[in-house]
Design a protein around this nucleic acid. Structure first.
Lengths: 74, 74
DNA sequence: ACAATATGTAAGGTGTGTTTTACATATTGT
DNA sequence: ACAATATGTAAAACACACCTTACATATTGT
């Protein structure tokens, strides 16, 4: 999952540790999500977006099938 | 995690199985998410919102700390 | 009455998100 | 030179999302 966390942190001059503390998760968790090593839980995604005062869709970018595509019939 | 999946399905007259097929997951996965038994992965949350042509925030409702609240200093 | 569909639920297994601990490197300030 | 901070990374353990299989109940159509 692609995301803009690194840039959003930089804009606010937050370290990974700073963000981790705000979120109540480990620095490694922030690092892994930021680098796309794995996806955050939905709850953590909400929390991250909230810290940046953005919506989830403004922070995270899945490899997006079009909204109308139907996996079953595609 | 609270959500509006049941209503959104009803508006479209989709069964849990129908939605599951569209998402490429099991009916039980849809049932569990819909009933709040557990949260979907972020990817699945994106896919669900996409099927309803809505944003994640219009489908899922976390127990929301205010956007400006800081867990570390609250 | 019977078959088919829709939903809820449970058990057991696999994959992965998150944790703690730990080490390495680069950068900055003194 | 030294200390402190920021970042990347790894291993081992735990929690849980999601799977398959299976059964129960209710509703609908014939």
């Amino acid at each position: 999952m692609d995301n803009r966390i690194k840039v959003l942190r930089a804009e606010r001059d937050w370290s990974q540790q700073t963000l981790a503390d705000k979120l109540g998760v480990s620095r490694q968790a922030v690092n892994a999500v930021e680098r796309g090593k794995h996806d955050p839980s939905l709850q953590l995604a909400f929390d991250i977006a909230s810290q940046f005062n953005l919506r989830i869709e403004e922070v995270f970018f899945p490899i997006t099938k079009s909204a109308t595509e139907d996996k079953a019939s595609a």
